[in-house]
Amino acid sequence: MLGSPDTGNGIERVEARMLGILLVAVGGALGGMGRLAVGHRVSRHLGSRFPWGTLFVNLSGTLLVGWLAGSLLAGQPLTGERLAGPGWELLGIGLLGGYTTVSTFSLQTLSLWQQGRSLAALANIAATLMGGGMALLVGWWLAEVVT
C-alpha cells in the first residue's frame, strides 16, 4: 500500500524501478547496520534477559517513520498513495523499513515463551504493539509541530 506508483512508460519506467530498488537496497543496508549497532548498545546497558534492543529499535524506527511520513506529506492526510519517490524509497522503505524488524521480534517472543517466561513474552508483545502505536503518533505530531 505504501509504495511508489509506476509513472511514465517503457524505458523510463524500468529505469525508475531500478533506481528505486537500488535506493531501497542502500537504505536497507544502512538500516540493518544501524539496528545492529543500536540493538547492541541498548542490550549492553539494559541486559539481555529481555529483548530491550529490538524493542528500542522498533519504537524509535516507528517514531521516525511517523515523523518522516508526516513531513513528506506536509499536512495532507495519510490516504491514497502519496508517499512515493526517491526520498521515500531511500529513507522510508529502505532505511527505516530495514532498521525495524518483525522477524527478530517474533523469534525473541517465541523464545521467551519456550523458556517458560510467558509473562515476559506477553509484555514484549504489549510493549511493542502499544508502544509502536504511541511512537508513531508522537512522530506524526512532531512533524506537524516542526513543519
Binding site: 505504501l2 522477524s103 502505536g133 508513531l136
Partner: peptide, 18 residues
C-alpha cells in the same frame, strides 16, 4: 539479522495501521 531483519518491517506495519 541481515536477510530476515531487512525483509521484515515493523515501522511500515505501524504506518499502514495508522
Amino acid at each position: 539479522a541481515g536477510l530476515c531483519g531487512g525483509f521484515t518491517t515493523f515501522s511500515l506495519f505501524g504506518l499502514e495501521t495508522w
